[in-house]
Write a protein that binds this DNA or RNA. Structure first.
Lengths: 202, 202
DNA sequence: CTCCTGTGAGACAGACCTGTCTGTCTCGCG
DNA sequence: CGCGAGACAGACAGGTCTGTCTCACAGGAG
């Protein structure tokens, strides 16, 4: 109903499908949302959806790619870079962005983590698990590059540890700990200090 | 019902069901495993299962309770207490146990996190989400008590931060980072240091 | 002996899912 | 004006799942 989206969106069924799928998958998870709901909500015919996305997996893969663009790049990365003047500040700003994110009423969690854990150990075999792992990898690359630019030691290990703080705080936020980002930020600060000393090993 | 009970070792279908459900739910997730698989694997009639567990939710709740006993208490807590001589050592030993856990070929992740994230934001309304959150809470109580005994400042906040490291390393391990526990342990050590100083941010 | 209870085996209903297929409509273009 | 491509609508097939139900059997109690 409605088609209140004016003439512009009239001939863009693929965009309408992906837009609807993005909202539904991000909010309710890719497993809980059926194709039929995407169809009815986007006002598209089932045959149209399957013409653009041969299987549900393809639609989910498109969603994950879109998620990386909107969440990883446009939200987290861009905001963190904007809020900090130095690489170190930009790293820490990630958790400031997280803090804002965790306080949203429609906080939806990290789709990459959600999809990966939905595979329950078979993630390395399933294309959705592989894609999610790749997008999580890409986040770590962003962190590692900032660590590089900040002159930190062992940037690869730093990025892994940093990412543990990010993922842990996201799960904590899903649990209801709305100030998890501030807790993680404090630990993150200590981690930076540890990687400023020439020797990292304990 | 067999007079004065305790002829329980007879066939004990309830124990067989729960034992089978424990293995399947822990390994493959509570959503992916159907009642029929529990039935065939445990050699029990469907009516028998539904007599002991009126709905699948009841079976999952029983699984989660069993999971707390076997994983939280018998594995993590007991092993950590055994491996350390002081409360501080026992806290750090949690990540030694994690390290061993992450390296198991049948590493299955944290069922509480998995179930909670499976609710996709509606965890606080769903009984399974509430139960999972409660069991995660209980883990934090164990950590807080150890922090108390170690004389750390702000043990409640400490436990929340510590738990972020635990959850973050579990997700990282699910991603394939087998040495995530050692990374978390290093950060955990710094966290302890931070909570030894008399003044700590709240 | 019969009754009674718990059990195994499995058919069945009803809901929901993915994916296919058949129509009908509209629109652009020659 | 006619034609074809793409889109809408929805029936349909084939599979999954939960949960109910029937039936046969086994063993202890009265």
């Amino acid at each position: 109903m409605t088609t209140s989206h004016e003439a512009a969106t009239r001939d863009a069924p693929r965009e309408r499908i992906l837009e609807t799928a993005y909202d539904l998958f991000a909010q309710h998870g890719v497993g809980s949302v059926g194709i039929n709901e995407v169809i009815t909500r986007s006002g598209v015919a089932k045959a149209t959806l399957y013409r653009h996305f041969p299987a549900k997996t393809d639609l989910v893969l498109a969603f994950l790619a879109e998620r990386e663009q909107r969440w990883t790049h446009d939200f987290i990365e861009a905001e963190a870079l904007r809020r900090g003047d130095t690489p170190t500040e930009q790293l820490l700003a990630i958790f400031d962005v997280f803090d804002e994110w965790f306080h949203r009423t429609d906080f939806e969690g990290c789709s990459f983590i959600n999809v990966l854990l939905e595979m329950h150990g078979h993630g390395s075999e399933h294309p959705l698990g592989q894609a999610s792992a790749q997008y999580l990898d890409n986040i770590r690359v962003i962190v590692r590059d900032l660590a590089d630019r900040a002159g930190l030691t062992a940037p690869q290990d730093f990025a892994h540890s940093w990412h543990i703080l990010m993922k842990g705080s996201i799960v904590a936020a899903a649990e209801g700990d709305t100030i998890a980002a501030r807790r993680a930020r404090t630990m993150a600060h200590s981690l930076i200090d540890e990687h400023r000393a020439p020797a990292v090993m304990s």
